[in-house]
């Protein structure tokens, strides 16, 4: 069964007043953090001309489109159109919002009517998001210590020590993105090199 909540990024990669691209099951999302730190995920299309809102810019609690500067407030409703400064935009000019929660340093998205919370990931620290051009089977084939489907978990060898890792799977058109976490206290540079090595091995396996 397809999970409702899907990891689309790590909190550390989305500072305040920044927008980035995300997605849920092929649905492109603009994921952005306001100046006060609130994270939201919206349909990644400006209702005006279809520009990706993830290319936009954040001022305060609003996200503005890079193309013509239309400004959207926290409810997704257009608040301001620079070319028509005196106009109060109608409330029907609105960007569809997804459910979005930040938990354990991970940004999770789900359809708006989703109830419940993503799985908790205790004792783990965020590491990196990396994209692979292979499938999950290739990852599991080269790292037998890992198991799972939507979250690959296990004890792996990093720097000569057994280390708990969790790789949250996000499928995309070219393969998959793994949002990697590792046990608190593990050297993240060593863990990052392990992830790079895992990707090289898995992609080689996937291409074989």
């Amino acid at each position: 069964m397809t999970p409702r909540w899907i990891a689309t990024g790590l909190s550390q990669d989305l500072p305040k007043a920044v927008a980035m691209a995300g997605h849920w099951q092929g649905q492109d999302l603009a994921v952005w953090r306001s100046a006060t730190g609130r994270v939201q995920a919206w349909n990644d299309r400006c209702p005006h001309r279809g520009m990706r809102l993830s290319h936009g810019f954040v001022r305060g609690e609003t996200l503005a489109c890079i193309y013509h500067g239309w400004v959207y407030g926290a409810d997704g409703v257009c608040k301001h159109i620079p070319a028509h400064p005196a106009l109060t935009p109608p409330a029907t000019i609105r960007v569809a919002a997804f459910a979005c929660v930040e938990q354990d340093g991970v940004i999770w998205v789900a359809p708006a009517d989703t109830v419940g919370a993503p799985v908790a990931l205790r004792g783990l620290q965020p590491l990196r998001s990396i994209s692979l051009t292979c499938d999950v089977a290739a990852v599991l084939a080269v790292e037998p210590a890992l198991s799972g489907g939507d979250a690959l978990r296990g004890l792996v060898q990093i720097g000569g020590q057994a280390c708990e890792v969790c790789l949250l799977v996000q499928h995309n058109a070219a393969g998959l993105t793994l949002h990697a976490l590792c046990a608190v206290g593990v050297d993240r540079i060593a863990a990052s090199r392990w992830v790079e090595d895992l990707r090289r091995r898995a992609e080689r396996k996937g291409a074989a």
């Binding site: 990024g9 790590l10 990669d13 500072p15 920044v18 980035m20 691209a21 990196r128 998001s129 990396i130 994209s131 993105t177």
Partner: peptide, 12 residues
């Protein structure tokens, strides 16, 4: 650059 978060923050 969607798959490269550290690169994006560096360009910012």
């Amino acid at each position: 650059l969607d798959a490269y978060p550290s690169v994006r923050l560096w360009t910012r």
